[in-house]
Write a protein that binds this DNA or RNA. Sequence first.
DNA 1: GTCTATATAATGATAGAC
DNA 2: GTCTATCATTATATAGAC
Lengths: 209, 209
Amino acid sequence: MRSATKQDDLTTRARIRNAALDLFPEQGFNRSTVRVIAEKAGVSPGLVLHHFGSKEGLREACDRYVVTRFRELKDDSLQGGMFDPGFMSRSIGESRVLMRYLAWALTTDSPEASTLFDEMVAEAVQVTQRSIELGYIKGSADLESRTAIQLSMQLGLAVLHEHVQRVTGIDLFDEAGLRRAMPILLEIFSGTFEPDLLQSLGETIDRTA
Amino acid sequence: MRSATKQDDLTTRARIRNAALDLFPEQGFNRSTVRVIAEKAGVSPGLVLHHFGSKEGLREACDRYVVTRFRELKDDSLQGGMFDPGFMSRSIGESRVLMRYLAWALTTDSPEASTLFDEMVAEAVQVTQRSIELGYIKGSADLESRTAIQLSMQLGLAVLHEHVQRVTGIDLFDEAGLRRAMPILLEIFSGTFEPDLLQSLGETIDRTA
DNA sequence: GTCTATATAATGATAGAC
DNA sequence: GTCTATCATTATATAGAC
């Protein structure tokens, strides 16, 4: 488990990347100008381009870094990988920056982020399959889609975390916030519909179909 | 029910706004230059600024329009408003543009969109409260948060709709796609956890807390 | 209301010294 | 590796004619 590294110990290249990792999700790509990134990293604008070739190159480096780091975290995981309950809190343990960046990258055209998304879905399907066999999770007529949608919902929650925090006070990228959210998520995925509603909704869908 | 209006019947101002409504979510704010918007609307760049003062003014006009339109759709609704099952399909009936724009706006700093989000949560809480009394929905220790999170998950799904479509083939902003998604969402919100897992997860949370 | 032409500002990127 | 100075491009916004 790598602990929070001091900025002073990092190479200049890493400091620049970390500055971008912070700024892109916070300000968006265009408002995070090379000058602003350079200032945050404590270097000159020219050096940013020197290290990454172009601003787009910097962005790709950030994408690759975050995606790679997520894969490493998955491999470190003793349990089921990205889908096991402790994964999110561990990645938050390293840094909320990682999760926030991924959430942001998923809302932009990022091939790296999209590939990671696909991997997460594929892995989640496997884990779910196994869990079904073990009698932990209910089966489905369309397990692939259900899993993909369920995972998208969780990641979507991360994408909208600012709104969630504003309304509920829960900071999903924070360990304390995640602890508050856990039982609520558990409640939701345990089912919030009573049998009566299920029947009438099922009929509505049949009528509409 | 207002049906799809022909572009030719609209005022120039409305045509410009519609062009932006399309472009902002598709290309992002910065790549949607005034020139591109003007071209799509079939007018000169100067006229865009003449009508909306600035590009930022155009963006605010779009936000206001979408948010207002959503409120109108809610008022038209005979049932529980934005949270009733038919609402989404009806708003898609008018135009997928509306939903796509809202999803995008929620990922940018939009006061209008944030306010709408808050309203949707407040309304959902009310509807859920009523549904609990009617025995349709299960109660909660923290109903506000649970409802906010559940709504965020649904909206988050809209935000990540491109990924959902890539992986499952389901286009959530399309009537046919929504019909495919409905039973899956029903399945999810009915609960996908078996009692065995619930117990062990509950213990895990207790241990972590 | 609508267009064309232009001013102005900011940004990504380059060149060259150290 | 790092900085300063500068270029070239592009975008928003304005001015004024029609």
